[in-house]
Design a protein around this nucleic acid. Structure first.
Ligand SMILES: [Mn+2]
Ligand SMILES: [Mn+2]
Ligand SMILES: [Zn+2]
Ligand SMILES: [Zn+2]
Lengths: 143, 143
DNA sequence: AAAGTGAATGCAAAAGCTTCTCATCTATTG
DNA sequence: CAATAGATGAGAAGCTTTTGCATTCACTTT
């Protein structure tokens, strides 16, 4: 299943690549760091080096299988590329990440780029805030 | 002149702090990395350590005198805080940075945060593209 | 099915950016 | 001008990410 995607990317179908892609597809958390992936693999009993995780994620990104983001923390996070662009809003308290798309914002960006004489290649919009959800983990002080 | 701003921030008025603030005010490039600041100081004959540059910039940020951004390059850039929020569009070819504000985008963000149950603390929007300006440095192949 | 070949892997080392430690120095106050 | 809390520079250390290299592996060819 994943095999075809990997092959299509011009990469050999190896255990690390299959496991990493599976993990990205099945992980409960869509947005994971290389370290996260590495630890999850370890926990799952896989013996895959951190360098390989970085290499594979980078190759997957180049192949368009995953996307890399820089949420202001000092490290990168990866997520499966769904083919549909979206932006992010992150809770600075609990780290929860929600995704959204707003066509008005997207359109305004195209207009702005046009006005300023730029040909857009991509953009990154991240909103930071506190989630007000009373059921969120970050509200449960004593559990 | 800068002295008052530094004092107001609760910091002692020292040579490194004054020089760094002056540099940020006078630099032709608004968006500079810590390394940039360090090298410009060196070039100006000032003997200020890189660690001090980082410390001072961090303190200035905490005091609201400067802002820090993470344009996807792996390092941080700083700029004088004008008090007016703005976003950025960057040429991936020449690195030129333009600033813009779009009230429609700002408003939509507030609505989205509201809908998703977040209380916004800040946001960062960066558009990447190629500048089409024929007079831009990145178009002058043979000069 | 076995061999051959280039690609992929794991580990350790190194790189790049940023922060920390600590001995020395300095701005500020009285 | 002495006293003192705070600031500095140099280098060590910290973190994330990349790289070098010997070994292993996937895929093709016999
Ligand atoms: Mn996402
Ligand atoms: Mn700016
Ligand atoms: Zn968007
Ligand atoms: Zn904005």
């Amino acid at each position: 299943m994943e095999d075809q995607e990997i092959r299509k990317a011009g990469l050999k179908v190896t255990v690390p690549r299959v496991k990493i892609l599976e993990l990205l597809e099945k992980s409960p958390e869509r947005h994971v760091s290389a370290e996260d992936v590495y630890k999850m693999l370890l926990a799952a009993g896989e013996d895959i080096g951190l360098a390989t995780v970085y290499r594979v994620l980078t190759q997957f990104e180049a192949a368009g299988l995953v996307e890399k983001h820089h949420f202001e923390d000092g490290y990168s996070v990866f997520e499966l590329n769904t083919g549909k662009h979206h932006d992010h809003i992150i809770c600075v308290t609990c780290g929860r990440v929600e995704e959204f798309v707003d066509e008005t914002i997207e359109k305004r960006q195209r207009i702005i780029a046009e006005e300023l004489g730029f040909q857009i290649s991509e953009h990154e919009l991240v909103i930071y805030g506190k989630c007000l959800d009373k059921n969120c983990d970050c509200k449960k002080k004593g559990d």
